[in-house]
């Protein structure tokens, strides 16, 4: 998704989501206390430990905002998998963030049905009003990351936009400033 910065737009500050800042600190386990109990409960639903992998990764992302390599290693230990295996799974699914993202992670559907209803204009409007500069980059204040996604499954409500876990239907370029204001 990440593309080189478009000319004319202010070059974004990448340091706000620099993964190296997180690597130096020792890993604080995600699965302690309530999260651990939640995982233990999940494990009762499946005949194998491996089946709890996707749910476990969702817990990681909810707790940490992204899935770091340390978290992958932690999950692999808990589920009797190897870190390489977990990484293979994480990289298959597009919804797990492999690096930190903005406080508001904004996904815009641009697949054909939304595309022919003007989704590109919504993307442009979002990029302009969030100041992220380009797709996949995070705004200087660390608040926003905007990406295009493939079909969000709400084609009749073009253009659907997902902000973190919230689903907003029928977004037009004009509605974008209001939506962003509501977040603040």
């Amino acid at each position: 998704m990440t593309k080189p910065s478009v000319g004319g737009l202010e070059s974004p500050d990448l340091s706000s989501h620099d993964a190296t800042a997180h690597e130096s600190a020792p890993h604080v386990p995600v699965f302690a206390g309530a999260a651990r109990e939640e995982l233990d409960q999940l494990l009762t639903r499946y005949p194998t430990k491996m089946a709890a992998l996707l749910p476990a990764l969702w817990i990681v992302q909810r707790e940490r905002g992204w899935v770091s390599e340390d978290s992958m290693a932690e999950v692999s230990d808990l589920l009797d998998l190897t870190p390489a295996y977990v990484k293979g799974v994480v990289t298959f699914y597009t919804m797990y963030h492999q690096h930190p993202v903005g406080k508001y992670f904004i996904q815009v559907c641009t697949t054909s049905p939304c595309g022919i209803c003007g989704a590109e204009e919504v993307v442009k409007s979002l990029l302009r009003h969030t100041g992220t500069g380009d797709l996949g980059l995070t705004s200087r204040d660390g608040k926003f990351t905007v990406i295009e996604v493939e079909c969000l499954g709400a084609c009749g409500f073009a253009t659907p936009v997902m902000i973190n876990e919230e689903f907003i239907e029928s977004v037009t370029p004009e509605k974008v400033p209001g939506i962003l204001e509501d977040l603040a």
């Binding site: 998998l81 190897t82 390489a84 295996y85 990484k87 293979g88 990289t91 298959f92």
Partner: peptide, 10 residues
């Protein structure tokens, strides 16, 4: 029996 390699991305 040691999963060191994977297929990454898709």
């Amino acid at each position: 029996h040691e999963t060191v390699l994977n297929v990454s991305d898709r």
